[in-house]
Simulated assay, not measured.
Amino acid sequence: MTVDIQKSSLLITSLLVSALLVGCKGSPFTESLEAAEMEQPMVANVSVLKAEKKSVTLFDELQGRVVAFRTAEIRPQVSGIITERLFKQGEMTAKNQPLFQINKEPFLIDIKEKEASLAQSNVNLLLAKRKYTRLQALDKSSAVSKQAYEEAVFNQQKASANVMQNEATLEQSKLNLKYATIRAPISGIIEQALVTEGTLVNKGDSQALAIIKQIDKVYIDVRQPASKLSTLRKLLSKGEATNQKGLGVNIKLSDDSSEDIVGKIVFSGISVDLNTGDLIVRIVADNLKRTLLPGMYVRTEVPRRSLNAFLLPQQAIQRASNGEAFVSVVTASNDAIKRSVTLDGIQDHQYVVSSGLKNGDSVIIEGYENIMPDVELNASDWNPSAQAG
């Protein structure tokens, strides 16, 4: 009995609520709420970037090989026995630093011999001068024959020449003693010693005693198709016109751009490889940290073309079903339209757009996926730092 009464009460309550809702449906309050919901516009938030045309240089990424800025093969200028090695292998050496010592004793003895010969020739010159002075006085009074006087003149000149000759040979002997200490002709890193103490070396030997390479600056030789030579020359001539020494090249050590080294193109080769059709482009770069070592292969970005273009973040570029590139632009009437664009590569992780835009266009960078018909756009300036964060 109690259960039936509860069911009847619940049914009556439900009927009263339904009647109340039906009675309120056409009320002014309900109609105003529904109208407000229907009239509220849909908004799409987008981030835009003002297109700005600027001068852009496009690059070809090419592989290059590092070459030492200077290379010196150490060879003896005199013959003798190596008595001492005066450097540590693989260390930095300064110009004129002693590297090897050849036995000095033979050169010291030779100098003494040359000094004795010079002293003897000076004595002979003194005697010849005295004889010439005596005969010169007698010749004025015709007290000596013409032949005797001429012989005195000749002997004095001969003695003087002997002195000059002995002075020169003495200087050569002293120079040989100097050459007995073999010194570094350039500053750089010296590689392993190719001879040891006790080795007999001779002037003119084909084998080097050691090799020094200067790498605080290095060359990077890059092969480039000869077909691009004219373009490269135009870029080089443009650099000369603006008083730039060489043409800038980026040397990529890793994917981290902060480790890049900037070099300069100093010249392009004049001979084309018959097998590949390439020519050598030489780049010079500072290498104070000695990051680049001779023989290493590195990636380089060699200038290919200069043009006026727009740089856009990669996310701004969209693709149609046929692969055509386009961007979305916000118009003055706050509508979004599509613009087909021409891409000429990527620079600094941004697309190079050569045509399809004009200065001042508001290009949508983020939020274009929210754009729908009859949707109001809420455009704000794109903040790349916020995206990076």
Results as ranks from 00 to 15, higher is better:
Asn322Asp: 14
Ala241Gln: 08
Lys174His: 08
Asn124Glu: 14
Tyr368Cys: 06
Ala159Val: 01
Arg233Lys: 12
Thr196Ser: 15
Gln120Lys: 09
Ala128Ser: 04
Asp221Ile: 05
Glu151Pro: 01
Ile111Met: 08
Lys146Ala: 06
Met164His: 00
Val298Ser: 00
Ile109Ala: 12
Ile211Cys: 07
Ala336Thr: 02
Ser258Tyr: 09
Ala320Glu: 11
Pro41Arg: 05
Ile109Met: 08
Asn122Ala: 05
Ala128Pro: 00
Ala51Ile: 00
Leu10His: 12
Phe87Arg: 04
Gly90Val: 10
Thr181Ala: 00
Gly204Gln: 09
Tyr219Lys: 06
Ser268Trp: 13
Leu288Ile: 11
Ala180Leu: 10
Ile102Trp: 07
Val327Glu: 07
Ile109Gln: 13
Ser271Cys: 06
Leu15Arg: 09
Ser271Pro: 05
Ile12Lys: 13
Gly204Thr: 10
Val67Arg: 10
Trp382Glu: 04
Lys54His: 11
Gln350Ala: 12
Asn287Gly: 11
Val272Lys: 07
Ala193Pro: 04
Thr57Asn: 11
Asn176Gly: 00
Ile5Asn: 14
Gly269Ile: 11
Gln63Trp: 07
Val48Asp: 01
Leu15Tyr: 08
Pro76Ile: 01
Leu247Ile: 15
Phe100Gln: 01
Ser254Tyr: 11
Gln350Ser: 12
Ser14Cys: 11
Ala241Gly: 08
Leu126Tyr: 11
Glu259Tyr: 06
Leu235His: 04
Arg70Tyr: 06
Lys217Val: 00
Ile190Asp: 01
Ile81Pro: 08
Asp344Glu: 12
Gln89Ala: 15
Val48Asn: 03
Leu126Ala: 15
Arg134Lys: 05
Pro28Phe: 06
Asp344Ser: 15
Lys174Leu: 08
